[in-house]
Write a protein that binds this DNA or RNA. Sequence first.
DNA 1: CTGAAAGCGCTTACAG
DNA 2: CTGAAAGCGCTTACAG
Lengths: 341, 341
Amino acid sequence: MDSSSRKRRSSGRVTLQDVAREAQVSPITASRALRGERGVAPELVQRVRAAVDRLGYVPDPAARALASQRGTQVPVLVPMLSNALFVDVLEAVHRVLFPAGYQPMIGVTHYDAQEEEQLLRSYLAHRPAGLLVTGFDRTEAARRLIAASGVPCVHLMETTEAPGVYCVGFSQTEAGADLTRHLLSRGHRRIAFIAAQLDPRTMQRAEGYRRALRQAQCYDPSLELLSPQRSSIALGAQLLEQLLRLRPDTQAVFFNNDDLAQGGLLAAQRLGLKVPQQLAVAGFNDLAGSDQMLPPLTTVRTPRCEVGTEGARMLLQLMGGQRPAQPCVRLGYEVVVRQST
Amino acid sequence: MDSSSRKRRSSGRVTLQDVAREAQVSPITASRALRGERGVAPELVQRVRAAVDRLGYVPDPAARALASQRGTQVPVLVPMLSNALFVDVLEAVHRVLFPAGYQPMIGVTHYDAQEEEQLLRSYLAHRPAGLLVTGFDRTEAARRLIAASGVPCVHLMETTEAPGVYCVGFSQTEAGADLTRHLLSRGHRRIAFIAAQLDPRTMQRAEGYRRALRQAQCYDPSLELLSPQRSSIALGAQLLEQLLRLRPDTQAVFFNNDDLAQGGLLAAQRLGLKVPQQLAVAGFNDLAGSDQMLPPLTTVRTPRCEVGTEGARMLLQLMGGQRPAQPCVRLGYEVVVRQST
DNA sequence: CTGAAAGCGCTTACAG
DNA sequence: CTGAAAGCGCTTACAG
């Protein structure tokens, strides 16, 4: 019993010291062995591993973070959880990062750049191991915070050609254009665009919509209905009614998100409009329930799970000091044609 | 320039030392002043505060956690984010905890007790400041982990009379019974119950359903359709069709969750059934879109935001060393009668 | 009410 | 390839 020191504050925890003693090596060697640092004799590594198992040692993240100036947390900043899209992204991220020993911390920005900046300030004080953010649209201060922290960062959902930026996403603009071309291919000319939230990705899809219609020589700005409100089923219904009051001659509607489209479909039904005969309706993202609507909703299946998985994997490489093969991964999507168009 | 020590590893961070020097007090006093510990001269507190502002000091969470054996993280364990219910709870929790200086960490258990146990093991190693969990249904090992950690813990969504347990929720059983009584009051006798997931709260609502029907002398077990699958709009549609094949004489259906009910409503429409004349449909939780359905869905508005807010507040008290006025808060709910019943 | 010393459990340099 | 010493930035006891 050597509790020689009077001022002991031991927490009863099994420490690296205990492991080292058990394995008959120095604490430094034990530390190196556990972190898989190369340059440790294989035999010692094995002895340390065995000691860990015997003692049930769990490293102390706080101590590690303090000593190494880097923790195991990974803040993941998303705009909003009520958009099912981001729930899927988070799930995928978690499935990759957690088993690798990292703690993803979900931060919700509510589509507000100021709020994001504040979250970053708080999270970066924790010396996170890495960082996952949504898109490229943020305050200059936020950008500087990230850069100055030196924390590896991967951007999700969008892609860019800018050098030195890591990202995994898909072309929102292309996807928007492709869906619009599908509507054109059905013979529609007066194709409306209804959107809410008006975040950058929404505006990129709007851009794709415009591009496709201009190419077909039938772009009409008065068929765009953009609302800054939060996207929802109820809002979709409301906006469709509003649009039809202004432009009863609308032939097809591209809703920026499936929740809006579902609401639009229900509103059309209430108004007694036959879909797709009198009005074609398309959504975006292929959210839950879209395949159950009456009629089932045409939409774009976006690779959100893959965005999460690939983004997390890229971050894992960066955190491990490796350089990803590709700094910018551009994923595919799919126009899912159902009976509403 | 006194970089006397050769082995400096300074991170360039502003430390408590710097603050203390600037305020002309000892680091201990600065520490106490910042943590609001009583017994520090008001004048010194002010000097320290001023120094913090001048220097832009941000406390290091890792160092604090290491020294105090307690961090600022608060794991929040919920079953599943695809259930919009828990997204609302998390939002509310975040809104209370984050401004108070804590970091909520979202953990998803996927309704799996083993997975929850594993998450607890990992999160508790981080010395969290507090813990928020869903319900009371967990492994014995998980229960022991929580108790042994000494971390303050509040249980969400359900309530219990057990002593020494902190919880905020509402009576799922009563709510289930109340909704059933509403259906009875509409003159229905053959009232079915359709549920998925079969988690504890679902089963409590089933119990309420049974209780109300037994009281009315019309409980019929063959009108219960329970599926272990994941709750979804598509499943609701499928289960309704299945039920009607077995029991075409069903007069009303109580769906355990609104997503199922929405699917049921869509299926009824596809089958050409008039709601509520030929079949009454009710849901639970009043999720997004339920008020937009055709016809709008009768459901129970559950106090999920309040659960999050009150649960987080109670935890805040516990983490601050106070004893909440009430260890178990039982909130209200509301049967929202719309046109589907 | 205030402070000098020691310690929390790890890792980073520096040697050898 | 391995290790003794020092340090990361705080807080906990112990004194006064």
